[in-house]
Simulated assay, not measured.
Amino acid sequence: MAEILKVATHEFADKGLAGARIDEIAAATRTSKRMIYYYFGSKEGLYVAVLEESYRRVRSIESELKLENLQPEEALRTLAGFTFDHHNGNQDYVRLVMSENMLRGQYIAQSKSIQALNVPAIQSIRNLYDRGVAEGVFRPGLDPIDIHASISALSFFNVSNQYTFSQIFKHQVQDPKVLAQRRANVIDMVVRYVRA
């Protein structure tokens, strides 16, 4: 099943739900369409399972950061840097999220686990933010979901818009030097937004 999910992740990220083909996933995993349908019920069921696994994976790695053991600003910097690196290093994840947004969240809404998977991420931000406010290093009155959205948006753009941005501005966003500077800028923007 893990191999099916891995291959299906790339297939759905590359072609979207409508364009992905179960035949190609079956051939690449040396299994049968029947076996895929047995495990996942349908093409849409496999797509939901891919979404769930993608979110589970990022949240699992994120939980290993041990942000609670870091000073608030260091924790925020670590989280922003991790998110930037994750999105850049897992571009299929970004494409899946883009695809699901094109579908207006229709399949994420069917998931029984994705919302629960994301609760700890927001709680982690709430905890580090509250510690920072209590220590006087973060300004009060911010919403942890908004902080999460800001980190996500700044990290997401570099992947989601890399081709159009590079063509329009003749600025190669995936060049290692450009990428390193962008990463540093994203972390700095997030910290400046939250800092007291």
Rank of each mutant, 00 (worst) to 15 (best):
V173A: 07
Q167F: 08
A116P: 01
Y93N: 00
K177T: 13
S113N: 09
Q106A: 05
Q106V: 00
S166D: 10
G136K: 07
D146G: 06
Y163P: 06
I145F: 12
S155E: 07
V137R: 03
L179V: 05
Q110W: 06
Q162F: 07
A134E: 14
S99L: 01
N118F: 07
L142Y: 08
I147G: 04
M98F: 02
I145S: 13
G105I: 01
D146N: 10
Q110F: 01
L142W: 04
N161M: 14
N161K: 12
E135R: 08
R131K: 15
S113W: 00
G132V: 03
A149W: 09
A134K: 15
A153L: 12
V94M: 03
V178N: 12
D146F: 07
R126D: 11
D143I: 09
Y163S: 15
D175C: 10
I114M: 05
Q162S: 13
I108L: 02
G105L: 02
A153M: 12
K112Y: 01
Q172M: 08
K112F: 00
Q162T: 09
I114T: 03
G105A: 05
I108G: 00
A149R: 14
I108P: 00
I125K: 02
N101M: 15
V173L: 13
N127H: 14
F169I: 07
Q106D: 03
V159L: 04
G136E: 12
Q123Y: 06
S113R: 06
N161H: 14
F169D: 04
G136L: 07
P140T: 13
V133I: 08
Q167N: 13
